[in-house]
Design a protein around this nucleic acid. Structure first.
Lengths: 142, 142
DNA sequence: TCCAATTGCGTAATGCTATAACGTGTGCCA
DNA sequence: TGGCACACGTTATAGCATTACGCAATTGGA
């Protein structure tokens, strides 16, 4: 029941990944835990350990601004794990991933100019997605 | 002891702001609380309420990726509160603010193309600042 | 072959971050 | 003067993440 090959997922990792993949939006670690109770999950650490591995593999992204996790949409190149921006709808919870090479080029330019060694870059836009923006008027009251 | 003019800070707000301004780097809300015990602070909410006001005024920034707060460096325009990127050194804790109009222009471009209504944009780079990068070799072991 | 290193797992406890829900007081102004 | 907006204080609770301990299985040399 342990890992037999480097690139395969263990049972716990696969369960967490499946849970995130099936979800419609980002999930918190504790939500994942709750959804995996029936599969034997008992403690937060089981989730966090799996998430650590999955994020390392680029299969899952962490959304820093909302303390949640999403399965990688997979629409981008594998080695661009940390060159992805997120647009998070605060109304419906949907998350859009997008990669803007120019944005990252400029940030890397700043880093180079300032001799800053980059480990991880976070770009997250919060607001309302197209559908929710339309559903909600601009000036609700007054 | 309450607010007499709209643009002035209350005692609590001023104390939190001063604490952050004097700090060398970002502080967590609970660290701020500890530093203000002698000034009568007892509960997290006293800090969080002040922080909410200060971030609203643009005097303080929240660093989402490390759950901490910094006093605004003030080197940028007042109305560019949320158009600022941060470079956070994970070794010494120093934070650099910088505004890159092109980056934000491209992100706003994406938002416009996708009819996404932006509320807040977060850009945070974590890594090693120039001094710390030099102090730490690239491949420590192996 | 056997030892040691690595990796993952399970459990319990703890720590850190943030908010909910009360009620109080004060200034403003219609 | 009554209502509103805002700030405050306190207690309790919710939500997020890690430390620490021990065990089991795999792997890769010596």
């Amino acid at each position: 029941m342990t890992q037999t090959q480097t690139s395969e997922l263990t049972r716990n990792q696969a369960l967490v990944h499946e849970t995130l993949s099936r979800a419609e939006g980002p999930l918190s670690a504790y939500t994942i835990l709750d959804r995996l109770r029936d599969d034997g999950f008992r403690a937060p650490l089981q989730v966090y350990r799996a998430l650590e591995k999955l994020t390392g593999l680029g299969l899952v992204h962490r959304l820093e601004s909302i303390n949640a996790f999403v399965a990688c949409a997979g629409a981008h190149r594998h080695d661009d794990h940390d060159l992805i921006a997120f647009a998070i709808c605060e109304r419906c919870g949907q998350v859009e991933e997008f990669a803007d090479p120019d944005v990252f080029a400029r940030l890397e330019g700043w880093a180079a100019d300032n001799k800053f060694r980059v480990d991880k870059t976070t770009i997250e836009i919060r607001g309302k997605c197209a559908a929710c923006a339309q559903a909600e008027p601009l000036a609700p009251n007054s």
